Amino acid sequence: MSERDVVTDGRSDGTGTGATVTDEVVRVEGISRTFGRGEHAVHAVRDVSFSAGRGELVAVRGRSGAGKTTLLNMVGGLDRPDEGRIVVAGHDVTGAGERKLLELRRGTVGFVFQTFGLVPILSAAENVGVPLRLARVPAAEREERVAVLLELVGLGAHAAQRPYELSGGQQQRVAVARALVNEPDLLIADEPTGQLDSETGRSIMDLLRAVVHARGMTALVATHDPTLIDLADRVLTLRDGRLVDG
Results as ranks from 00 to 15, higher is better:
Arg33Glu: 11
Ile188Lys: 00
Val88Arg: 02
Glu24Gln: 14
Ala19Trp: 06
Arg54His: 05
Leu236Trp: 04
Arg133Tyr: 09
Lys68Asn: 09
Val235Arg: 07
Gly62Glu: 09
Leu104Trp: 02
Ala59Phe: 09
Phe35Glu: 08
Asp9Ser: 06
Ser49Gly: 06
Leu155Trp: 01
Arg37Asn: 14
Leu134Cys: 08
Gly169Thr: 04
Val109Met: 00
Thr22Asp: 15
Leu149Arg: 12
Glu141Val: 10
Val25Tyr: 10
Met74Tyr: 13
Asp225Thr: 02
Gly154Glu: 10
Val221Trp: 01
Asp206Tyr: 14
Leu101Trp: 06
Val48Leu: 13
Asp233Ile: 01
Thr218Leu: 00
Val137Gln: 05
Ala222Met: 08
Gln195Asn: 15
Ala159Trp: 12
Ser203Arg: 12
His224Trp: 05
Gly107Val: 01
Val119Ala: 11
Arg178Phe: 07
Arg178Met: 03
Ser167Glu: 05
His43Trp: 12
Ile121Ala: 14
Met1Ile: 13
Leu220Thr: 10
Val153Arg: 00
Ala19Arg: 05
Arg209Ser: 15
Gly156Val: 03
Ala140Gln: 07
Arg63Ala: 15
Asp240Asn: 13
Val235Lys: 04
Gly84Lys: 11
Asp233Trp: 03
Leu102Arg: 07
Val21Ala: 15
Pro81Leu: 03
Asp92Phe: 13
Leu132Thr: 10
Arg133Phe: 10
Thr218Cys: 15
Arg215Thr: 01
Gly168Glu: 03
Asp206Val: 10
Arg27Glu: 09
Pro131Ile: 10
Ala147Cys: 05
Phe50His: 02
Gly95Arg: 13
Asp190Cys: 09
Asp225Glu: 11
Leu57His: 03
Ala66Thr: 02
Asp23Gln: 07
Glu151Gln: 13
Val146Arg: 05
Glu191Pro: 01
Ala175Glu: 04
His158Arg: 14
Gln170Asn: 09
Val153His: 00
Leu57Trp: 04
Arg33Asp: 08
Thr115Leu: 05
Gly246Ile: 02
Gly36Gln: 10
Gly18Arg: 06
Arg33Pro: 08
Arg61Ala: 15
Ala124His: 07
Thr223Pro: 01
Gly76Arg: 03
Arg27Met: 14
Val88Phe: 09
Pro120Gln: 04
Gly10Tyr: 15
Gly67Glu: 14
Arg162Gly: 10
Glu199Ser: 15
Gly18Tyr: 03
Arg4His: 09
Thr108Ser: 01
Ile204Glu: 12
His40Lys: 12
Asn73Met: 14
Val244Gly: 06
Ala66Arg: 02
Pro163Ala: 11
Gly62Cys: 13
Ala41Tyr: 13
Glu98Thr: 00
Val211Cys: 07
Ala44Thr: 08
Arg54Gln: 13
Leu72Tyr: 14
